[in-house]
Amino acid sequence: MDLNTIWFLLIATLFIGYFILEGFDFGVGILLPFLAKEDVERRMIINAIGPHWDGNEVWLITAGGAMFAAFPQWYATLFSSFYIALFLMLIALIIRGVAFEFRSKDESPRWRKFWDWAIFFGSIIPAFLWGVAFTNFIRGVPIAENFTYVGNFWDLISTFSIIGGLVTLTGFILHGAIFLSLKMDEKLSERATQFAKKIWLPNLIIVVIFIVETYFFTDILQRLGVNPGFVPMAAVLSLLAVGWLVANKYAGWAFIVNSLVIFFSASTIFIILYPRVLVSSINSALSLTIYNSASGPYTLKVMSIIALIFVPIVIAYQAWSYWVFRGRIVRDENSLHY
């Protein structure tokens, strides 16, 4: 395996980690106004992700940094061509992050309501946009010679990419609902489970539509064949299993298997892409690949050594932080932190 492939795998890992982790806290943010009936419940819900959302978001920041370092042409082309979409995502992430910190620091109901909706919109916008973005990666965007993007914002919007957005949106809501059924006290946990049951079927239907569309709008047939192989199959089968696990209230298993759904689905996208990183809809020869968009071998080598040392350390202490805050959130004013 060459260094370019290793970096492709590493960036794929960072994005998959990001979707599994931030996926549930996006879902929790979206569910916040609907599941909670009173202020103490809203605080319980926020407390469930309070210690983690920021660490989860760093997976994205690191993925961005890794793209910049290992595949600067990919980073430059992607970020400039998805300009308006990224701008919307940044605004959403800004108000969301601040909202978590600010909302409980003033008693006024208007203040809290404002930030609760900031959390909602700050979660729903990126949850949708990520699906749009990844659909466009495989569908292709108008890239001409010298990696120059010749389209505009509207070229990123199609029925296919909107369905893709709905896949991540409903998927993350399901993920968040399952997470809350695992973390909340009995009353709230029950409500979260009911919500997970309700969102599961729409999520499944949208996923199926997306898969069908994939055969029309991408070159998946040439790349993977009619039988796409283990990974995409595993994604669908795990999603079916999640439905059963949620219905039978195996919250812990449901969360693990739904994380596998995200793992297998996102992996499928990266398998379709490889070795390309951004497909050109103008001419496949103009696509960005892990070779024509990469940094020099020296940079890749230095960065590989650093990643090899530090990625396991990061995973270890993040896992430890989840272990510290294991267990359900207690409905008790005094034990809830802000």
Binding site: T62, G65, Y317
Partner: peptide, 30 residues
């Protein structure tokens, strides 16, 4: 300059942002 400039940015995220945000969460809620 991505070949050079991207590296410290990625290292910053990997070495600094992860510890800052993870341990701040631990500190605030722990």
């Amino acid at each position: 300059v991505g070949d050079i400039f991207g590296a410290p940015l990625a290292i910053e995220a990997l070495l600094a942002f992860f510890v800052e945000s993870t341990f701040l969460g631990v500190w605030l809620f722990g």
